[in-house]
Amino acid sequence: MIELNNVNKSFTLHNQGSAVIPVMEGASLSVEPGECVGLIGASGSGKSTLMRLIYGNYLAASGQILVGNVDVASAEPREILALRRDTLGYVSQFLRVVPRVPTLDVVAEPLLAVGKSQAEARDKAATLLSLLNIPEGLWGLSPTTFSGGEQQRVNIARGFAYEYPALLLDEPTASLDAKNRDMVLGLIEGAKARGAAIIGIFHDEGARERVCDRFIDVTGFSPQVAA
């Protein structure tokens, strides 16, 4: 479902003497439907960079990033947009939404984007929000005013509202208490069971062991630093 072949990435800082900073070399991996793969490696080793490359948020310098049958590394913007709408979900650590939009609508949006009815989308959103213990009194408010933990859970609800065949999870359980953490891991297991291919970054070891089928150490994709 997700397959990377020899992906390279570097940043060129044009405004700092055109310094070229290589950040990834020869990244290759493959994730099957129903499988959850955990990325490991020290902080700064490129786990998030890899996730962003797969999501098309960063532009790969070379190589192939296949999600379904779309090569994210070479696809047109609209192909990537369609991929993000229909196939590939991403739960990041940060919530980025239009101010003023009620939480319920934030969560329902991915469902509306694939053409579900307002009623159906809001129903599903409500189910997820109560599952993740967001008090109903907050649903009508914009999540921009919420605490970090609440924003994180809204983010997760949004990521799981629509059943993406492929999911990228960046620290989904960080800043969650035990009860909510358990709930989120349950959602991940559910997604696996319905056949989603998942790549995740989990700092929390217990969570990692519980949902991941195998691990990939991204340190192996780090460029050889010529010191």
Binding site: P33, N69, V70, R78, E79, D86, T87, P165, R194, G195
Partner: peptide, 16 residues
């Protein structure tokens, strides 16, 4: 994965 295959085809059809 049947559902998965449908999704791919949908995506393709919609974009192409």
């Amino acid at each position: 994965m049947r559902a998965d295959k449908d999704f791919r085809e949908n995506t393709r059809a919609r974009t192409e």
